[in-house]
Computed example of a mutant assay.
Amino acid sequence: MNKKQICWANSSYDDSDIVIVGIPDETGSHAIFAGSSAAPDHIRKISNSNDVYAEKKLLCLAQPTLGIGQARVHDYGNIKRRQIETTMAKILAAKKLPISIGGDHSNTTHIIKAMAKKHGKISLVYFDAHPDFVSHTRNYYGSVITDCLDYIDIKSSIQIGIRSPEQEELDNIKKHRLRVITPFDIIESGIKSAAKTILDTVKENVYVSFDMDCLDSSFAPGVSVPVPLGIQSTDAMYCVKKLAQRGIIGLDIMEVCPSHDLNDVTSHLASRMIGELISSCKV
C-alpha cells in the first residue's frame, strides 16, 4: 500500500467519486499550539499504520461501520494555500466530492469561495468549539464566518459544538441569527433531536467544515486550541453521517495538531472519520 496516501484511497483521479486533498498550511493561525500543517501527512501515516493489518500475509483494511461501500476514492496529495480555489474548481467541475485535510481553519474560507462559485450560496454546517465570527479583524482562523458571509446562506447554516465564544462573536451570531447547537443542547435534547435540527435547517448544497476541537478533549487532545466540555466523537460523527447520507458537496477536517497529540489518538480519529464519511456519502 502506498504510504503517501490515506488508506481509504483506492482509485485513480479520473475514476474516482471522492478526492482527498491535503492542505498543510497554518499561516492563518494564532493558535495556542503550532503544528496543524503537519496534519495531512500524519493522518495519512496513522491511517496506514493503524487501519491496515496483515492477515495470512495479506494486507487487510479495517473497515468503517458498514464497510467502505461503492465509493471510489483518490488521494490527490497536498496543495499550497494559493492553489485551494483552483484545485477545488477542478474537482467540482469533474463532479467529484472533495474531502480536505488541514491545516488551520482559515483554509476553509478559500474552499467555501470555490464552492459558492460552483453552487451559489451554500448551507454551511460548522463543527467547532469557537464561532470563528470575529469581525474587527479579518482573514485568519477566527474570522472564517465573517469572511464567508457573501458565500453562505446564513439562514440555512448552523454551528455545532460552540462553547468558547468572544462577546463580539455572540453579538454577530445574534445579529445574523445564526443557529447554534452547543454540547449542552445535545445533552439536553439528545443526539437524534440535534441531528434533526441540523437536517431541518440546511437546504441544498450543504458543505460541512469540521474543526476537531469541537470534540471533547478526551476524544481529541491533539488540536491547536483544545477546549474541555465538548461533543462526543460518536455524536458528532452520527450527525456528519446523516448529512452525508442525504448529500453534501464537500467536507473538511481542520486543526489536528500531531505534535500535541496523545498516542496519535486524534489523527487516528480523523482517519476513522474519513472512512465513516466515505462509507456514508451519497455518490
Rank of each mutant, 00 (worst) to 15 (best):
A34R: 15
T87G: 07
A34V: 03
A270W: 04
Y13F: 15
N10A: 05
C281H: 05
L61A: 07
R81P: 00
P228Y: 13
T109P: 00
Q159P: 02
I253D: 06
S224F: 01
E188N: 14
K95V: 01
S218K: 09
E188W: 01
P24W: 09
L58K: 15
S267N: 05
E169P: 02
T108L: 04
I84L: 09
I18P: 02
E85D: 03
K118W: 00
I6F: 02
S271C: 11
A129D: 07
I249N: 06
N50S: 14
Y53L: 11
I173A: 07
A39F: 02
D171E: 14
I249D: 03
E55H: 13
K241D: 04
P183Q: 12
K3F: 04
V227W: 02
E168G: 13
K203Q: 12
P258D: 12
S189N: 15
C239K: 00
A9E: 05
Q5R: 12
S189E: 13
I18Y: 02
P228F: 13
K117L: 10
S267L: 03
L58E: 14
S156Y: 02
I253G: 04
G161I: 10
R177L: 10
W8F: 14
I101S: 05
V202F: 01
S189Q: 15
L215T: 10
I91A: 06
S233A: 15
Y140H: 15
G275V: 01
I79A: 09
G161Y: 05
Y53G: 06
L170K: 15
P98G: 09
A89S: 15
N263R: 10
D185H: 14
I32Y: 07
Q232T: 08
S280F: 03
I101A: 05
D25I: 11
H260A: 09
E168T: 12
N205V: 03
T146C: 05
V73F: 01
K4S: 10
I253T: 09
